[in-house]
Amino acid sequence: MTQATVSLRVPSRSAVLGVFQKYGVYIAIVLLLLYNLVFTPNFFAVDNFRTQFVQVVPVLIVALGMALVIGTEGIDLSVGAVMALAAAVIPLYVGYGLVPTLLIAIGVGAVIGLLNGSMVAFIGVQPIVATLAVMVAGRGLALLIANEQLKSVTSPEVLALGRDSVLGIPYSVLIAAVLVGVVAILVNRTTFGKQLIAIGGSRRAAELAGLPVKRILLIVYVLCASLAAVAGVIGTARLGASVPSTLGNLIELSAITAVVVGGTPLSGGQVKVLGTLAGAVLLQFISATLIKHNVPDAYSQIAQAIIILVAVYIQRGKARVK
């Protein structure tokens, strides 16, 4: 599709900007892959791509929920803390088997989502404030539950979730792929998705149109936190240990970046699910490229900052074109 858009005639500045707004993240992925094809040994190996996709799973799943929240003109900073909470409860219930453990972890996430959503929808607390409070308290609670200890998880079922594959595709990647599909359908093909986007576009208009605004906001925050809990379980399964003190640290920033880079504006009213997937993959490829070329950490941080700035700049251009 990029070839089709970049035609031979000299495009105007705004046309170029438009192309970048629409396909920038995909163009960036292609460029990065080309660079790695030439300069990075062993990059184009099945194993390497498997590693990249396994590593992107937690950020991607969190970003899916974040995209929904951002679509309503909200934000959820508590996702990392929810991952920590999910991780913290796993050792307590892992004896009951994989499914109960998973359900309990997601249930814990849903409860946190209810808390966030209630504050935002019913009390009218600003999302950034409400979820910031939960972010701080949530990790504290996680440490309390875990007795401030790292615990090894040895249940083979749970470990399989993080480490095993079917037909060469890791379970965690399969789960993420299914979730991308489900969220895409939710956003584009359901009443709920349309209403969510309308709320983000104009909350007042949605209220006056009789939409159940509060209920939808509540559900959106519950979904976001539940997805974060799934990411927490997968992250824990991959590590083979419940590490509530660091699991999901700063993941909210990566997730927000993935969402924004993927073309969902922070001002709400749009949700780009495939863009979010691409955004998360782009961030993963960037970090992999930098590590493989042994770029010092300070430079990687600067590189990430530049990408965020560019994405936000392009978004801003979009708002102005409107």
Partner: peptide, 29 residues
């Protein structure tokens, strides 16, 4: 502008906004 239309949505989505549940099957539009 502030309370009526949802500016970032299409004409179609704006027209069906209130009637959406009636124009859906099992939650799917």
């Amino acid at each position: 502008k502030a309370e009526g239309i949802v500016p970032n949505l299409s004409v179609r989505d704006n027209i069906v906004l209130a009637a959406l549940p009636k124009l859906s099957r099992g939650g799917f539009t």
